[in-house]
């Protein structure tokens, strides 16, 4: 465990989390969420939890991003009301 690397990744995770909830476009929020998942995966792997990192990389960054995009493409750009 290298604490400076930990601190750097944690800082990037916090920045990504704030960006994902503050950005207006849903598609960009999904992509930032994917970046967040990859950074969390890096953090788990760096802390020695390789199994959790593997799950985060496959489910969090891989499949859930695709599922989010598949759901978002069926919404319209502006709300009707």
């Amino acid at each position: 465990m290298i604490w400076t690397l930990d601190l750097l990744i944690l800082l990037l995770v916090v920045i990504c989390a704030i960006a994902a909830i503050s950005v207006k476009d849903l598609l960009s929020a999904t992509i930032i969420f994917g970046v967040y998942s990859f950074l969390m995966c890096l953090l788990w792997a760096e802390m020695g939890a390789v199994d959790v990192a593997f799950t985060e990389a496959t489910v969090g960054a891989g499949v859930s991003t695709v599922l989010f995009i598949a759901a978002i493409l069926h919404t319209s750009r502006r709300s009707k009301d």
């Binding site: 199994d51 593997f54 799950t55 496959t58 489910v59 891989g62 499949v63 695709v66």
Partner: peptide, 21 residues
């Protein structure tokens, strides 16, 4: 080794997702 049924299943499923994409 790291991995197991859940992760391998997700990787297998994502190959079919890739085909459909």
């Amino acid at each position: 080794s790291p991995g197991g049924g859940f992760q391998g299943g997700v990787i297998l499923g994502s190959s079919f997702v890739m085909l459909a994409l």
